[in-house]
Design a protein around this nucleic acid. Structure first.
Length: 271
DNA sequence: CCATATACCTGGCAGC
DNA sequence: TGCTGCCAGGTATATG
């Protein structure tokens, strides 16, 4: 579920509500992808200063250190009045003076990690290699082109790798490549400058639009207020194998790259 | 350094 | 109904 748009939509849905809250209690459920990295009791008494995002990570700033939250494949946060006991798939609770922040994550590929600062090696191990933010000022065409020129791998896989540009996952990689008219199999280094410019724009267009639409809710994504997203309704290719292209009616194709599904229109995406 | 495969975990679905 | 196999939004890690 969670690519950049879903993570950003989640952030927007609880950041202001939790800001200033004091942690009353913290609880862990089953193990997540990585250990918390500090005694859970150490979170009690901390104050939440705000919530930022880096790639697909949420950074919850505390008065001492910060929490890095990743939603993995199936994670979702909720923030609201405390009440219900944790369910089978609720694996992290942060009870605060302003509400309960809860991580629901059936597959447990997600994580909550404490670090003393962003410069902390614990944080750097997760954030250090990340590429540029596609919706930030720093997403320059020139640097993007330079990054792609060094890579012989298929463009789809370079986008997913996240070391050139962050936040583009399996849905939005396919969608951005469709918008740019580029085949997912094209080697990144072989893209011409105009095609790179088109992709640079397409990534921003797709991600910004998805944020506007509240993200994609394929099965179970919802923001911290429990609201689902609608971008999946306007997806051009993702999960539309054999369905007619919305532009030219050619059946959309599905293929596998790096053990992940890619979707494209063989007519609209020639090279 | 780069490209690709593997592992982690649970649930939903199609097919028999 | 129950079993099996496949599929799913990610990414650190290991292996060429």
């Amino acid at each position: 579920m969670p690519e950049l748009p879903e993570v950003e939509v989640t952030r927007l849905s609880f950041a202001s509500a939790i800001a200033g809250a004091r942690v009353l209690q913290a609880t862990l459920g089953k193990p997540l992808r990585w250990p918390l990295g500090c005694p859970v009791q150490a979170l009690v008494g901390r104050q939440v200063l705000g919530v930022r995002r880096r790639g697909k990570y949420l950074l919850i700033d505390l008065d001492q250190g910060l929490l890095l939250v990743h939603l993995g494949m199936s994670g979702a946060l909720s923030f609201g009045p405390a009440g219900a006991l944790p369910g089978k798939h609720d694996h992290f609770d942060l009870l605060t003076t302003q509400g309960l922040l809860r991580l629901h994550d059936p597959r447990r590929f997600g994580a909550v990690v404490h670090a003393d600062s962003e410069a902390d090696p614990v944080a750097q191990k997760l954030l250090g290699h990340l590429g540029v933010e596609p919706l930030g000022e720093g997403f320059a065409l020139q640097t993007f082109a330079l990054g792609l020129k060094k890579r012989q791998a298929p463009i789809k896989q370079v986008l997913l790798a996240g070391d050139v540009v962050v936040g583009v996952g399996n849905i939005y990689a396919s969608e951005a490549l469709f918008l740019a008219g580029i085949r997912p199999t094209t080697r990144a280094a072989k893209l011409s400058k105009p095609r790179i410019a088109g992709l640079h724009q397409a990534i921003q267009t797709v991600l910004a639009r998805a944020v506007q639409q509240g993200g994609s809710s394929l099965r179970d994504f919802s923001n911290a207020q429990g609201q689902t997203g609608y971008f999946q309704l306007e997806a051009m290719v993702y999960d539309r194998a054999a369905e007619p292209c919305r532009v030219c009616t050619t059946p959309i194709k599905r293929m596998v790259q790096g053990q992940r599904s890619s979707f494209f229109c063989p007519t609209c995406q020639k090279i």
